[in-house]
Each structure stands twice: as C-alpha cells, then as structure tokens.
C-alpha cells in the first residue's frame, strides 16, 4: 500500500479492526499503563505506555521502539487508549512523524470495546522485531521557533485545545479556543466528519489555512485535535508537540482575558 496517498483512514471502526485482527494484518498498540495492559487488552495488542514513549521521544529512540514492536514501513497500525483518544493520538502522531503513514486510531475507547463484549485477553503476543526506515515528516511538527514566525502569517490559525477557563487565564497570543471536549461525539473519539466540518467552518477554520494545534504540556489533547482536523479534510495541520508548557518555560509572550473574574463562575 502506498504511504503518502492520503487514503489512510483517520479512525478505524470496531468491525474492521476485528477482521484485521483475525487476518493478522494489523499491529495493534495499546498505550495504556503497563498494569492495565497486563490485566487485559484487545487480543493481539502490544503495549507502548505513553509515559514510556515520552521518557525519550527522540526519533532514534522511537525507531527502536517501533522496530521492537515488529513494525516495518508496510505494517498497518491501529492505536487505542482509554482516555478518549488523546493518548493514542500522541502515539499515532509520533509514528507518522517518523515516516509511518499507515496508522489509524480506534474510533472508540478500550472501555467501550470491552463493554461491548469484544475480544480481549491478557496474552502477551510474540513476534519478531523489524526494521523500519526513518523519513522524518517535519511538515507535521511545529517547534516554538516555527510557531513564533508562522504566527505572523495571515494564513496560519493557531488552536488551543485546553479547557476554556485555562484559555481565558492564559494562552499564546492570537490562538483560538477549541476545548478538546468539542472534538468527540457520543461514544466516538471524534465527531462525524460533517459535524466537525460545520463546527470548524463556523469558526473560520478552513482548508485555505495552515493550522497548528497545542495544549497544556505534551501534545495529547492537541494530538487528538490534529486528527480531528484531518478527519474533516483539513490536512495542512501541524502539532506544536511541546505545547504551552514549553512556551511558558521559554518565557514567550502570553495573553489573557482581562477585567473579568471568570474563575468565580465555577463550582468546587
């Protein structure tokens, strides 16, 4: 299968994944914590806890991890989590960045998979490690330097995926707020395509723009947003993967909503 044709599905539905698992034509990655994985997981899935990846996500390290999971350039990969797709998105994005294009998200969470009574067990699969190439896709990554210069362009839209109160309190100047909760619909990690398109279009986010997403710290919530954009056909998207945490550490300018005590509207 060709890698860069753009035919890869953003999410995969439950039935397709089940048949791919039966055909042994897919590598499934479970990104939950090891203890949870060991208890039970989707049949045949391997475990890559997000924390393991984040402890060092340099391309060299990621390449090693990918090889050790038996993934080469041709392997079809599906990633899932139990956190509305945000952690899975971060892992999927990392594979994509490495140059692996045939990667999809499971359209639902593990919790939901299990409550539907679908195949799961506690067996740890055996497989041979493989050799993946490294073709870094820098067009899907935004660094702080890149962001700083891109922000001045009219055709760039910066999206903040944190919760609204956090956004009001502090955000990168010029960003628009799209809380991650907006991305999902009942039972699915992403809204239906038409719904997502309508929402984005109302907000002036269209395919004529380059779009950069960010969130609080490690690019999970904004990773999900990255895939939400792609699912709506907006493929010119980048993830500011080090997100607001790095931006603040670098003491770059931030902006806040002034003259209002919005925090006092929240209970608890």
């Amino acid at each position: 299968m060709c890698c860069l044709s753009g035919t890869v599905k953003i999410t995969t539905d439950v039935d397709s994944l089940r048949s791919e698992i039966r055909d042994k034509s897919v590598r499934v990655i479970d990104v939950r914590r090891e203890a949870d994985y060991k208890q039970d997981h989707i049949t045949s899935a391997v475990n890559l806890p997000l924390a393991t990846l984040l402890s060092d996500d340099s391309p060299e390290r990621v390449l090693k991890l990918v090889n050790s999971m038996g993934i080469d350039d041709e392997t079809r990969v599906v990633v899932y989590d139990d956190t509305f797709g945000a952690l899975a998105s971060r892992v999927a994005w990392t594979l994509e960045y490495l140059g692996h294009s045939d990667v999809s998200l499971l359209e639902t969470t593990y919790g939901n998979w299990k409550s539907l009574g679908l195949e799961n067990d506690s067996q740890i699969p055996n497989f041979q490690s493989k050799e993946h190439s490294m073709k870094l896709q820098s067009n899907i990554l935004a660094t702080s330097d890149y962001l700083e210069s891109a922000k001045t362009r009219d055709d760039v839209i910066l999206i903040d995926n944190r919760e609204r109160l956090n956004f009001l309190e502090q955000h990168i100047p010029g960003a628009i707020s799209l809380p991650y909760r907006t991305l999902a619909s009942d039972g699915k990690i992403l809204r239906p395509k038409e719904d997502m398109k309508r929402l984005l279009e109302n907000r002036g986010v269209t395919e004529n723009s380059e779009i950069i997403t960010y969130c609080g710290s490690v690019g999970t919530l904004s990773g999900l947003a990255y895939y939400a954009l792609k699912s709506a056909g907006l493929s010119n998207a980048k993830l500011y993967v080090r997100s607001f945490k790095e931006w603040k550490n670098l003491q770059k300018p931030t902006e806040k909503q002034e003259d209002a005590s919005y925090w006092d509207l929240s209970a608890e």
């Binding site: 919760e163 609204r164 628009i176 809380p179 909760r181 929402l199 907000r203 509207l265 929240s266 209970a267």
Partner: peptide
C-alpha cells in the same frame, strides 16, 4: 464542557446559563 467553562449556572428566573461561549459556537 464542549462550549463553556465546564460549569453551568442556574438563575433566579428558572433558566440555565452557559457563560464564556464563543459567539460562533452558539449555533
């Protein structure tokens, strides 16, 4: 959660309000 601040507000006139909604999201 989707469009407001993760909170809602009950009013004195038996309505419920969502605050800090982006105008473009009202629809």
């Amino acid at each position: 959660e989707q469009y407001s601040i993760g909170n809602a507000h009950f009013t004195t006139r038996e309505s419920i309000q969502l605050h800090w909604v982006i105008l473009e999201d009202v629809s």
